[in-house]
Amino acid sequence: TTQFTVHSPEQAEQWKEYAKQKGLEVHVQKKNGTWHVTIH
Results as ranks from 00 to 15, higher is better:
30 K>T: 07
8 S>C: 07
4 F>W: 04
10 E>H: 07
35 W>K: 00
28 V>K: 01
33 G>Q: 05
28 V>E: 01
33 G>S: 05
38 T>K: 05
32 N>S: 05
7 H>D: 14
27 H>Y: 11
29 Q>Y: 12
36 H>K: 07
22 K>E: 06
38 T>D: 02
29 Q>G: 05
35 W>F: 08
22 K>D: 03
24 L>P: 01
3 Q>A: 09
33 G>T: 04
40 H>K: 11
11 Q>V: 12
4 F>C: 10
34 T>Q: 12
13 E>N: 10
32 N>Y: 06
10 E>P: 02
32 N>D: 11
5 T>R: 08
23 G>D: 04
19 A>Q: 01
25 E>H: 12
33 G>K: 05
1 T>C: 15
23 G>W: 03
25 E>I: 14
29 Q>F: 12
16 K>S: 06
14 Q>N: 07
11 Q>K: 07
21 Q>Y: 09
20 K>S: 07
16 K>I: 15
30 K>S: 08
8 S>L: 05
30 K>E: 15
34 T>H: 11
15 W>S: 01
13 E>H: 07
35 W>D: 00
8 S>A: 04
37 V>C: 00
21 Q>P: 02
31 K>D: 08
12 A>K: 02
30 K>V: 13
14 Q>R: 13
34 T>S: 13
28 V>S: 02
3 Q>R: 13
2 T>V: 15
23 G>N: 06
24 L>H: 04
11 Q>T: 06
36 H>T: 14
3 Q>H: 14
22 K>A: 11
15 W>L: 08
27 H>S: 11
36 H>E: 13
24 L>V: 06
26 V>N: 01
12 A>W: 07
26 V>R: 00
1 T>K: 11
17 E>Q: 12
38 T>A: 04
21 Q>H: 09
5 T>Q: 10
25 E>D: 09
22 K>I: 08
32 N>R: 06
9 P>A: 15
9 P>R: 15
13 E>M: 10
34 T>Y: 13
30 K>W: 14
35 W>Q: 00
34 T>A: 14
27 H>F: 11
27 H>P: 00
35 W>E: 00
32 N>G: 12
36 H>M: 13
4 F>I: 10
30 K>M: 13
23 G>F: 04
20 K>Q: 10
33 G>P: 01
17 E>H: 08
40 H>E: 08
11 Q>A: 14
10 E>T: 06
